Computed example of a mutant assay.
Amino acid sequence: MTYKNKPKPDDRSDNVEKLQSMIHDTIENMEAAEESLRFTTSETQRREIEAKNERRRESIESFRSEIKDEV
Rank of each mutant, 00 (worst) to 15 (best):
M1K: 15
M1H: 14
T2I: 11
Y3T: 15
K4T: 12
K4P: 02
N5W: 00
K6C: 04
P7K: 09
P7Q: 05
K8D: 09
D10L: 08
D10H: 03
D10P: 00
D11P: 03
D14K: 11
E17A: 14
K18F: 07
L19C: 02
L19D: 05
L19E: 01
L19P: 02
L19I: 02
Q20H: 00
S21T: 11
S21G: 14
M22R: 11
I23H: 03
D25V: 06
T26G: 02
I27Y: 13
E28P: 05
M30R: 03
M30I: 08
E31A: 06
E31C: 04
A32P: 02
L37G: 03
F39Q: 13
F39N: 12
F39D: 15
T41S: 12
T41L: 15
T41V: 05
T41C: 15
S42P: 01
S42G: 04
S42E: 05
T44P: 04
T44Q: 15
T44M: 10
Q45D: 11
Q45S: 11
R46L: 08
E48I: 06
E48A: 07
E48D: 09
I49C: 04
E50Q: 14
E50M: 07
K52T: 15
N53I: 01
N53D: 00
E54K: 09
R57A: 06
E58T: 09
S59E: 08
I60F: 05
E61N: 14
E61H: 15
S62L: 13
S62I: 11
F63L: 03
F63P: 02
S65Y: 10
E66S: 07
E66G: 02
E66F: 03
D69Y: 12
E70M: 07
E70S: 09
V71G: 10
V71Q: 15
